[in-house]
């Protein structure tokens, strides 16, 4: 309120004295946890903290070990150079070519795995009796228990040849799509596409279990409503389950992406480990490509500088994977409580 100078502001009439506030004591009640609760708390806290400590230690180790190579090359140059040559002096190493291959393989894997996972999850949650559900969950979990190395060997020795006709068909019919183009005489084995398929099998269980978890939390009332309106099961899934599970599908896919980015041995066996040259067009169907983890696995035991460089590449992968996983878990946790509603 502005007071114009010269005017007398009258005090508002004073009301009768308000009753004096009663003297009160604030009591804060703190719960005294039982011994069992305290013990449990300590154990869970301890487990949580040790995971953090471990992550930090891994990060620190990578940073210290890679400082040689990063210092000599320069962080920016390392991040943006596609070449990896240790036979020249000074060595010219960069992670971008490897990173491109890594991301491509992971994306191919996720693109293949997500629809499969969503349908598996639907088969489990919506189209199964209790008995079959248990059985299917077991099978998918079993898939998760297969060591990556076996997947890699199987992909290398068996699957690779079987995929070639599919690659051929894709390039003949969809060759106009830049990624699917192949050069005349190129071999179609050892391609990013094949590596992606193998990695897809590895990430399928994790995506399926996240998506299944979210689907199974669909409010039963909404499902009944859709069926009571004359909907078929598939109609109910489209109107209720999928919209509800949207967040879970996105989060699960990202979690799978994080996993796929790190999958090592399979891709070491499958790809020739020649870093992708940026600027040159990318052909996912023909022989070529390298991934960070595959590259590291292939060159383990090299000289000190190369090792340092490999660990620097590992550090970059570590950061990217960690970031992807963090975003994924945020998305998943939001989707559950948010019930897929975006208001």
């Amino acid at each position: 309120m502005n007071v114009v100078p010269g005017t007398v502001v009258e005090d508002p009439p004073v009301a009768e004295d308000p009753p004096a506030p009663r003297e009160r004591t604030r009591r804060v009640i703190t719960e005294v946890p039982s011994r069992a609760d305290r013990r449990f708390n300590q154990i869970t806290m301890g487990a949580g903290i040790s995971v953090l400590v471990l992550l930090t230690l891994v990060g620190l180790f990578l940073m210290i070990q890679s400082s040689d190579a990063l210092g000599e090359t320069g962080i920016w140059t390392f991040l943006t150079r596609t070449e990896w040559r240790t036979d020249v002096t000074p060595a010219r190493i960069g992670v971008l070519g490897l990173l491109a291959g890594t991301v491509l393989v992971a994306v191919v894997a996720v693109v293949i795995a997500v629809p499969l996972s969503v349908f598996s999850a639907l088969a489990i949650t919506e189209y199964s009796t209790a008995k079959r559900r248990k059985w299917l969950v077991g099978v998918v979990d079993l898939l998760a228990a297969v060591p990556s190395l076996l997947f890699g060997l199987w992909g290398f020795l068996y699957l690779s040849d079987k995929i070639v006709p599919i690659s051929l068909w894709l390039t003949q019919n969809f060759g106009w799509f830049p990624l699917f183009k192949t050069s005349e005489d190129a071999s179609l084995t050892g391609s990013i596409f094949i590596a992606g398929i193998v990695v897809a099998l590895m990430v399928l269980p994790i995506i399926t279990s996240v998506v299944r978890e979210v689907f199974s939390q669909t409010p039963p009332g909404e499902k009944e409503a859709a069926l009571a309106l004359g909907g078929t099961r598939w109609g109910m899934i489209k109107t209720v389950v999928l919209p509800f599970g949207k967040g879970g599908i996105v989060g699960g896919s990202m979690l799978g992406l994080g996993r796929a980015l790190g999958e090592t041995i399979a891709v070491a066996l499958l790809l020739p480990q020649v870093p992708q040259k940026i600027g040159e067009s990318i052909h996912i169907l023909q022989n070529g490509g390298a991934t960070v983890s595959g590259f590291i696995a292939n060159r383990a035991g090299a000289d000190e500088f190369t090792t340092s460089g490999l660990l620097a590449a590992g550090l970059v992968l570590f950061i990217i994977t960690l970031g992807t996983n963090m975003i994924a878990s945020v998305v998943v946790s939001k989707s559950r409580s948010g019930a897929g509603v975006d208001i």
């Binding site: 009332g221 409503a225 209720v240 019930a339 897929g340 509603v341």
Partner: peptide, 12 residues
Amino acid sequence: GMVFQKPNPFPA
């Protein structure tokens, strides 16, 4: 048609 005890519109 059927109306349930707990209102169950499709929230999204």
